[in-house]
Write a protein that binds this DNA or RNA. Structure first.
Lengths: 154, 154
DNA sequence: ATACATGCAAACCCTTTGCAGCCAC
DNA sequence: GTGGCTGCAAAGGGTTTGCATGTAT
């Protein structure tokens, strides 16, 4: 992968598409946003704000900038926000609105592994095969209920 | 349901078992704990601390008491903590360690409905049948990874 | 009598907001 | 030039902690 050699300067196809989406959404292409997106595209797995900030410390971006940009990226579907219930929001690049998968979080060391895709029935087996024990899971659905359909937001 | 008539004074079988578990765990049976458990047993569905405090306002319990007790209840498996990623922890009575189900949360009005049981493959259909649209879901697994098996906590 | 529970207040900590200056377009 | 972006500082808000007092056992 020659990406490793010039990962700094290279502009991957995914990054170009992302930057394009940013324009389309009426947002501006700033160096900070470019760096954050570049990192998220090159590195897989959900990252907390703190992890992102640490990984991109050389970029000298303010913490608030991460919060604000990731929030906007989520709004336009560029990233997915994930909650593990430990008080941190985590963000992950989302190549397409449909694409999504799930994770296994070690309750002891907090390691996060990704599962190939969202094939719910097969997953528990997959998790076991990864070597996990005392497996718990949380599955929640979100949507617009029938009462709210058509209702405007307050 | 005659429970409705004297829900205040009645001590259901579930409550008795819960109080017994409290003793077994080395905790003390206090009026506050009894009231919290009573409420959680009689009322289904996950409740945030704020909701619990409001529902039991007549009990004049400090907010901190809810936090501390629910945390302990969770530790001994009496309640299940659920995170919807909106900044609130919610708690739900858990009749047995194995019993669990999932929820549908309206992204607009925050209504929470429970799904019968954990039959993952059938659920999305079930959610649709409840009248929900724009359905998203989050499914995460937790467990002890192979690296951590046998390791002691720091 | 003693260790655990509770209430009150303050600390924590992730996240959000306000505002002046800066930069993309 | 102008409106969105950034950095710095401060506020928000759910949750946790410290400590003195109260209480279950």
């Amino acid at each position: 992968m020659k990406n490793k050699l010039n990962s700094e300067s290279s502009t991957s196809a995914a990054l170009m598409l992302a930057l394009q989406l940013i324009r389309t959404a009426g947002l501006r292409r700033t160096p900070g946003r470019e760096k954050i997106l570049h990192f998220l595209i090159e590195n897989h797995g959900p990252f907390s704000i703190e992890e992102l900030q640490r990984s991109l410390s050389w970029a000298k971006l303010d913490g608030v900038t991460f919060y604000r940009n990731l929030s906007q990226f989520e709004k336009i579907g560029l990233v997915r926000r994930i909650e593990f219930g430990d008080g941190f929001s985590r963000y992950e690049f989302q190549s397409s609105p449909e694409e999504h998968h799930h994770h296994v979080i070690c309750t002891q060391c907090r390691k996060v592994e990704s599962l190939s895709h969202c094939e719910i029935p097969k997953i528990e087996t997959q998790v076991k095969r990864l070597g996990y024990s005392k497996i718990k899971h949380s599955l929640e659905f979100f949507g617009i209920c029938s009462d709210c359909s058509g209702k405007k937001l307050p």
